[in-house]
Design a protein around this nucleic acid. Structure first.
Lengths: 237, 237
DNA sequence: TCGATGCCTTTATCTGGATCAAGCGCATGC
DNA sequence: GCATGCGCTTGATCCAGATAAAGGCATCGA
């Protein structure tokens, strides 16, 4: 693989130093299968705010998020965005076995992807039971996350939704910051609103209130410190 | 494997007349594997309102819903129930590869289940790639449904939530009633409230308003006729 | 240096849905 | 026949959060 010349954006050897090598679906593959998958994959960088694919697009690719963060969302006729999922490193993007994308996928931070042609990926799945199983594990985790989100935004008061979101994000993005109480929330107020079913203003007020109550501390534009996770959790009730 | 040529080449008796035989995960299995699964499963009837398993229970079983309907829900400290999923015939209940149940599963109508010991089911999955694939398909469908629900309750006005729920239910439970515009909604007002994140009173008022506007018609306690699905859909925006 | 732009916050006002409180319809039981 | 209970509806009131409007504070290109 190192014999390949000047292969810049499509380097199978990149698996060796892949940050999500042990967590992504590829982790379960034996070397031969990994090599086959690696040859099918292409690395891609996307900038913060860039659309990876849009709802209604033909579902021709799927991808593993290697680094960064992304959202899946819909924007209704009134222009209100509703986010239905956050994707963290090692998570997958795209719809397997379906003809069209159902949501917009947008990068929340500068990110790196490992992109596969869907057809090719599905062929590989047909040959590799372990890959099917890995995708299943990932999908079950996604399902848990989706139901947790439904539970979160099903509650009636704004306070609990925001508190729950902070805790969920801290948990999901956890490995990024050891104390697990201080992390970067790569979401604008508008995105938090779209995720929680609130408005920007309400989100802003809730943040101010949580800070005033000594439950969290805002650090710069996007930094969050969970000062009192226990009390925060109690708001989640 | 003890040789039973006659038995292994025929569809197990219990499955032969199963109403979800062609839709449930079992549909993909060859006769031998189906026989093995059938031997591992046992039928169970549950009455409307009966709890199938509760959040926190050890995850020792999983099941296919053969007939009826069920809900997955959580009840918070204040006694407010939030429903995170509806399960229709051919759907699965239970958490694979996880030690504990995460939600309460309760029958919405008198129902029939095909129950498996989780460990045994997982063993069978290890031997049957087609079963893993079938479970994956089912899980992907569940994921779509969960995200659709998150989208539904993320919207800000009650009208759209109720309208969207009716359409989603009509679609999901569709095969039950041919015109697809007239069906039985096996949910109490309280359950609809728990599903949409509203209160009983608001749900009731929205139903009255939808009926007054000529979009739906209520038939008896639980019957619903979608008089104007198109206009209903427009409320979903 | 200077707007211009975009995002966040804050204040003021309004409103849709929550809450509180009766009624109503319809079972079931005595 | 009437009481009891339960779920649904309806009305009256209240409030949390939506809406509207303005100001603060970065970054950015000219």
């Amino acid at each position: 693989m190192s014999a390949e010349p000047a292969a810049t954006s499509a380097v199978p050897a990149a698996c060796a130093e892949c940050p999500v090598r042990d967590e992504a679906i590829c982790a379960v593959l034996d070397p031969a299968a990994l090599d086959r998958l690696a040859r099918a994959g292409r690395h891609r960088r996307v900038a913060r705010g860039e659309t990876i694919f849009a709802a209604g697009d033909d579902s021709i690719v799927c991808a593993t998020l290697v680094e960064g963060a992304a959202k899946l969302s819909l924007t209704d006729a009134a222009g209100i965005e509703r986010i239905v999922a956050l994707v963290h490193p090692a998570g997958m993007l795209g719809r397997l076995f379906a003809p069209q994308m159902r949501y917009d996928a947008v990068a929340l931070t500068d990110s790196r992807l490992c992109v596969f042609a869907r057809a090719e990926f599905e062929t590989l799945m047909a040959d590799e039971p372990a890959l099917v199983r890995a995708v299943l594990d990932r999908t079950l985790a996604d399902l848990d996350a989706a139901r947790e989100l439904a539970d979160l935004i099903g509650r009636r008061e704004a306070r609990g939704r925001v508190a729950g979101l902070l805790l969920a994000f801290a948990r999901a993005a956890g490995p990024g910051c050891h104390p697990l109480v201080c992390f970067d929330l790569p979401l604008s107020r508008g995105e938090i609103a779209g995720l929680t079913g609130l408005t920007i203003e309400t989100v802003s007020r809730q943040f101010s209130a949580l800070e005033a109550a000594g439950l969290v501390r805002r650090i710069g534009a996007r930094g969050i410190e969970l000062v009192d996770p226990a009390r925060l959790r109690s708001l989640t009730a």
